[in-house]
Design a protein around this nucleic acid. Sequence first.
RNA 1: GCACGGAUGUCGGAGCGGUUACGUCGGGGAUUGCAAAUCCUCUUACCUGGGUUCAAAUCCCAGUCCGUGCUCCA
Length: 495
Amino acid sequence: MPIRVHDTRRRIKVDFTTLEPGKVSMYVCGVTVYDRCHLGHARCYLAFDLIHRWLEVSGYDVNYVQNFTDIDDKIIQRANEINGDWTALVDQNIEGYYEDMDALNILRADHYPRCTEYVDDMIRITEDLIEKENAYVADDGVYFHVDSAPEKFGQLTGQSIEAVRSGAGGRVDGTGSSKRDHKDFALWKAAKPGEPTWDSPWGPGRPGWHIECTAMSLDYFEREFDIHGGGHDLRFPHHEAEIFQGECHTGHSPVVHHWLHNGFVNIDGEKMSKSLGNFWTIQEILEKVDAMVLRFALVNAHYRSPIDMNESLLNDAERNYNRLLSCYVAALKACGSPDPVPLPPADITSNQPLVKSLGLLEKMAEGFAKALDDDFNSREGVAKVLGMVREISRGLQSGLDEADMNAFAHYGVDLLEETAGRVLGVLPTREIALAEPEEDPRRTEIADQVEALLLRRGEARAAKDWPQADAIRDELVALGVVVTDTASGPEWDLV
RNA sequence: GCACGGAUGUCGGAGCGGUUACGUCGGGGAUUGCAAAUCCUCUUACCUGGGUUCAAAUCCCAGUCCGUGCUCCA
């Protein structure tokens, strides 16, 4: 079955095709590195990480390019607020970007070009656009003339030129810009005092934002490529500007074969923004929430839907993630010998519990693949994984004989690693999953005391002296210890 | 105003022509002295009005309400 993707330009799901069989060229707009990444960035790069992973698992060799915008008004402004050293600011935030993305288990792209390394290309493309009469030189820079290719307008947002003219009419005056028409956008900005500049045929200045992505994507992929991704907000004007630039420059249409856009993150029903004060950086949120739980929460939504981040969503995610994790750990521990006996053939209609269970699991695995094939529906994928978790947990408790249990556990581990691990990226490594929790000094400190209390509680329980047993448990609670009675005796942990 | 997307059980949120989404909440049960954890199970919902169909939450038409974009933004 082919992979289906929702293409913003065509506004429908289409069969995913590639220019070259078995290979995918993918460009995703990266961050402007004037600050640390926020939750919205996490959502975006996680969405494309998932797409990246699923395409690879489906047998494609993905060439994934994601840029850093390392020169921009905000960077200059932020640098001026500190000490004016914009290169240091940029380097520091790029480092922070990798740190945040690594924490979220986001696989690295193949290439991370920086805009400032491509200024020559941007100048070359701008010259070409001037030559082709799609762009013109004005007092304060070079502009793309949108009316030179009106048929390309509104391809991602469906808006007509007339509508935008009337809608935005009042807002473009008084900017001091010398562009001919308010729809036109800057390809090159003439230098302003105190700003970093590059030399160009139009004097010193710096590139416009839109031309950066065109220059970098075309450098890697020449004249056309398979996937262009980014946040929903980039459709207009940024991505439409790229269509103008790329298609006029290459004379080729389309340059981008599939436009993919991820949905936004809202906080408690409101748009996340600095002015509303509900703005979370990844660093901040990871102080409160485990990175894997955050990843689980984000992956438990379709990449195109808006997501409302709130406490209950995170609580749900934490609960479900823990369920997945304890099932995985239980299955790992049940894997005795490394060479499991062969399992009976799966059959969902069988009366034999093991055979039927394998049938159910097989069906869920198929459903998982089907969900991901259908526009990377990771939410449906998570639902299938949770179904597997239930079935595997049940199987592990079903009293199979040792050989079957071992084989079933291996099967379960493989299944979870393939789906929750390799595709969704929400499973820790085996080593980490099985590692004993690090000895908390607090735990060691009170261990003897707790053991003594547990011994007394055990005696009380044996004597069926429940009030006494509960009183001792209350004492333990006061110490910050929670007790869980299991078949093999009580276990305790710090709250 | 224009454009794009939504409207599903207590709630969050899949599905998008016939089949259990999943989770949360609530009810019952197994296990447990009780609790926790785990497992089983029940409640069976699809904005309004028309239409197409043997069959519609799912397709078509009309309407209502909501979100987002049109300005730097993932």
